Simulated scan of single mutants.
Amino acid sequence: MPTVHIGAKSGDIAPTVLMPGDPYRARWAAETFLDNPTCINEVRGMLGFTGTWRGNPVTIHGSGMGMASFSIYANELIRDYGAKTLIRIGSAGAMQPQVKIRDVVLAMSATTLTSPSRGIFRDLNFAPCADYDLLVAAHAAAKTKGIPTHVGGIYSSDVFYDERPDLNEIMTRHGILCVEMEAAELYNLCHRHGVRGLAVLTISDHLQTKEALPSEDRERSFGDMVEIALHAAFP
């Protein structure tokens, strides 16, 4: 039955859910990659669609920006609709010189200062990580497609307009590949509920070089990321 934030009926949500932040990207991805996509949610403008990919049921559902918004949708998708595999597909800012614009980053782990789960862990510095099978399958898919891909730790920030250049320097020095705003909470929730999670990220800008992916190129790069995520879920 519908939840507070998702209007889908029982059975409308597939066990595998891809989650871009932007609801309009969810619509674009569903119309581009899924067969017979049907809109199953539009509560508060957060669009969700379910269709099939190579015969496998898939839902593509927006998450909004930031861990707080992501947590709402992921919790309801897992708890109320039985989602078993959640893959974040989104953009990120590179923090290492070898990570270039348009490259894909597969987040093996996600560092954060705080998240909606922080109140549960209290003094514990829990280290959430990706599902290994999803990670390996995604890397294989990216390699087959010839997409430059990096695997390692990322940083999930709880703010977009960062005022901590000293923190960025520390993370860069410790090998953090890129920064985004949702993956740490995704991994926390997947561990808590015993489901699979992975973040597949396209580099749209670079914190060191100040380069940025032109808007006209974002759709093509986003498409590569969706394909990697689908191949990871159904290798």
Rank of each mutant, 00 (worst) to 15 (best):
A14M: 09
E76N: 05
L201I: 09
N188S: 06
L186D: 00
T50G: 05
V159A: 15
R44V: 03
I87D: 01
T144I: 14
A229R: 00
E182Q: 03
G21A: 11
D158K: 09
G21R: 11
L213K: 01
K100N: 06
W28V: 13
T32L: 10
F33S: 04
P57C: 07
R173G: 10
H206F: 06
E182K: 02
A130E: 04
C129M: 10
A138Y: 04
P37R: 02
I87L: 11
W28E: 07
R88I: 09
D131A: 06
I13M: 12
V43R: 04
G146H: 03
Y24K: 13
G197F: 06
E163G: 10
V104S: 01
M225A: 14
H191N: 03
E163L: 15
P116E: 01
P165H: 11
V195E: 07
S63G: 15
T32R: 10
L124Q: 11
M171S: 00
Q208L: 15
E216I: 10
A199M: 14
Q98V: 04
G93W: 05
H5G: 05
H231S: 12
Y161P: 15
A92T: 14
F33M: 04
V151F: 09
T50N: 03
D35F: 08
P97E: 07
M46Y: 07
A141F: 06
P37D: 06
E185C: 09
P20E: 05
R218D: 00
E211G: 01
I40R: 00
A107F: 07
F49C: 04
H174P: 11
H206C: 12
A184V: 03
I101T: 01
G90C: 14
V104A: 09
M67F: 01
A184T: 10
D133Q: 14
K9W: 02
T209D: 12
F70T: 05
G197P: 12
Y187L: 15
A233F: 01
I154E: 06
T16M: 14
P165K: 11
R79S: 05
R102Y: 00
W28I: 13
V104E: 06
L77Q: 04
G197L: 11
I154P: 08
T59H: 02
R196T: 00
T85D: 08
D12Q: 08
A127R: 12
D205K: 04
L47G: 00
C178S: 15
